[in-house]
């Protein structure tokens, strides 16, 4: 596991940078949501993104797999730059998994079909192989017995775990999480966080937007604090929770902790 380093400089950037954002700017009409964001996530690193509501966390993470299109700056994912190039977009989308706050499972497909859909149609896998893999993943997230059900028949926590399994089925090198536990009842949060901790331990590169400070403290290699479209501070958990540098970070942490 790479050791986080606050003072990451250009010289030290290397092949094991999985996500590189440099000067990323994004406007919605005349509203600027990202004002030149610089973030780098290394291979096998877990990066947690913090920030008040409306600070552009979701926008940033959605730019990384091109659900939103950034207008200025560079985003390079696993050595592939995100441009209008169809092939680069395809490549990045199949390498980056994403988990949404609202799960976004496909309600007309069974759990199993939800998971095998992309491997079959995008990765062109044989059906049997995809299903075997899906069952394996369902084991891993702890709900193999739900395979034949429809998403509407599952609890929120179960749905989110299916959503994670669905992303993992594409064998991504990077996982993006946008507030995966915010829509869940308290008793279901831990079951989802456990799955995410497992993933992190397994060495997955992850970028996680969350308000779960316990999770951030335990799992994150580094944290980013954003406000109004700017990165305010980057650092390790000890750095953040014991000795934040910026006033705004202190204020935010004092409110949330």
């Amino acid at each position: 596991m790479s050791i986080a380093d606050n003072a990451l400089t250009d010289e030290m950037a290397s092949r094991d940078d999985m996500i590189v954002c440099r000067g990323v700017k994004k406007w919605f009409g005349d509203f600027q949501a990202l004002r030149g964001v610089d973030v780098t996530v290394k291979d096998r690193e877990v990066m947690v993104v913090l920030g008040p509501s409306g600070s552009g966390k979701s926008t940033l993470i959605r730019c990384i797999n091109r659900l939103e299109v950034h207008q200025e700056g560079d985003i390079i994912v696993d050595g592939v730059e995100l441009t209008n190039d169809l092939r680069n977009i395809e490549k990045i989308r199949s390498e980056v998994g994403m988990v949404f706050q609202q799960f976004n499972l496909f309600p007309h497909l069974t759990v199993l079909d939800n998971i095998t859909l992309a491997p079959i149609w995008v990765r062109k896998k044989p059906k049997a192989e995809a299903e075997a893999k899906a069952m394996e993943l369902l084991e891993r997230v702890g709900i193999p017995e739900q395979a034949a059900k429809f998403p509407g028949q599952l609890s929120g926590g179960q749905q989110q775990r299916v959503a994670i399994a669905r992303s993992l089925a594409m064998e991504p090198r990077i996982m993006l999480f946008d507030e995966p536990t915010s829509a869940l009842d308290p008793e279901m949060i831990s079951e989802v966080l456990d799955v995410m901790k497992d993933l992190a331990r397994g060495g997955m590169t992850m970028m996680v937007v969350t308000h779960e400070m316990g999770f951030a403290r335990e799992v994150a290699d580094r944290l980013v604090f954003m406000e109004s479209g700017d990165v305010v501070e980057v650092g390790t958990p000890e750095h953040f929770f014991t000795n934040p540098q910026e006033e705004r970070t202190k204020l935010f942490l004092s409110q949330i902790l």
């Binding site: 395809e90 989308r93 994403m98 949404f100 859909l117 992309a118 995008v122 669905r166 992303s167 594409m170």
Partner: peptide, 8 residues
């Protein structure tokens, strides 16, 4: 968005 994110 989910479909896009899966690369369909």
């Amino acid at each position: 968005e989910a479909a896009d994110a899966l690369g369909l």
